[in-house]
């Protein structure tokens, strides 16, 4: 058999191209697209961040590092950055708790068609326009809004519970927008847990909180962590939710950067702030990289 196979394989090998060619050909569309869509724009923005002004018109361009000193020259930016990171933290935490519980409910308490229907309902926020979602929240949260009116109806004497234009309102809007990521990643992690493990634990007398903290959370950690990354990174760069739901307290790194691009026409400063934010985010993930690696299954 092997004797017969050898000439056949050789003749086939002569007709097809070397393996690296086909690998390259297969990868080229994806990497070419990544180069055009991700790498080149980022590189352009990186170059912009060293310019003294937005390259437009006939004015000469000089290279400068001063935009990277923004946090020193404008110390109020540090406060904004801290608030932004806190906003990201609260949003991620709320998403993690709600998302984990929702995914757990989906996995443990539903089956078949009903589960699929619920999954689609959870994904609905993804299908609606973000702006519509945020504006509908303003209708709910504002004074004499939906929530406030119900509250007045229940307790006419009590004061207003309107929380539009507050940090809480921003976090509510962000959680609504990013919760589906967390539910999906947790769902995928939880659905792979073998029922027999939980049954074994129950038969050995484990209470529900033991099962939750010793089995479910550790085994779902990869989902929780990738969900947290997927939530935290876009949240600290968000500008629409803070602007519309935050009113005057809605000043975040996202809105500061947006202002530089849309109002101030100062692309270099906007770009340098974006890259500083990117560096901070990467530093945070680097600090927790040990936890992340363990969580995403490095040692499992």
């Amino acid at each position: 058999m092997p004797n017969k196979a050898t000439p056949q394989r050789a003749s086939k090998g002569a007709r097809i191209l070397p393996q690296w060619v086909s690998t390259t050909a297969l990868l080229l569309p994806a990497y070419g697209w990544l180069t055009i869509a991700v790498f080149l724009p980022l590189l352009t923005m990186f170059l912009f961040s060293f310019m003294n002004k937005t390259p437009m018109g006939k004015a000469p361009i000089e290279f400068t590092l001063r935009h990277y000193r923004a946090f020193i020259d404008q110390p109020y930016l540090i406060k904004i950055a801290t608030n932004t990171l806190l906003m990201g933290l609260w949003t991620t935490l709320a998403c993690a708790i709600l998302g984990f519980l929702a995914a757990l409910a989906l996995v443990r308490c539903t089956h078949g068609a009903r589960r699929e229907t619920l999954l689609i309902l959870i994904l609905l926020p993804f299908w609606t326009n973000g702006l519509v979602r945020v504006f509908s929240w303003t209708m709910v949260l504002r004074e004499n809004g939906f929530l406030d009116n119900i509250w007045h109806w229940i307790a006419p004497a009590a004061g207003s519970i309107a929380i539009l234009y507050s940090r809480e309102a921003i976090v509510i809007g962000l959680v609504h927008g990013y919760l589906p990521y967390m539910i999906l990643t947790c769902y995928i992690a939880l659905v792979t847990i073998d029922d027999a493990i939980i049954e074994a634990a129950q038969s050995l007398g484990a209470r529900w909180w033991v099962i939750l903290t010793k089995i479910l959370i550790p085994l779902a950690a990869p989902g929780l962590i990738s969900g947290a990354v997927l939530t935290f990174v876009p949240v600290i760069g968000s500008f629409m939710e803070p602007r519309i739901l935050g009113g005057k307290v809605g000043v975040t790194m996202g809105t500061v950067i947006e202002d530089q691009f849309t109002q101030a026409f100062n692309w270099p400063l906007g770009a340098s702030l974006s890259f500083t934010l990117l560096a901070v985010t990467m530093a945070i993930f680097a600090t927790f990289s040990g936890v992340l690696r363990r969580g995403t299954g490095g040692t499992a």
Binding site: Q74, G246, K248, V249, G250, V251, D259
Partner: peptide, 10 residues
Amino acid sequence: WQEVKAFYAE
């Protein structure tokens, strides 16, 4: 204006 907005947001 960015500084004033940050002050309003405190």
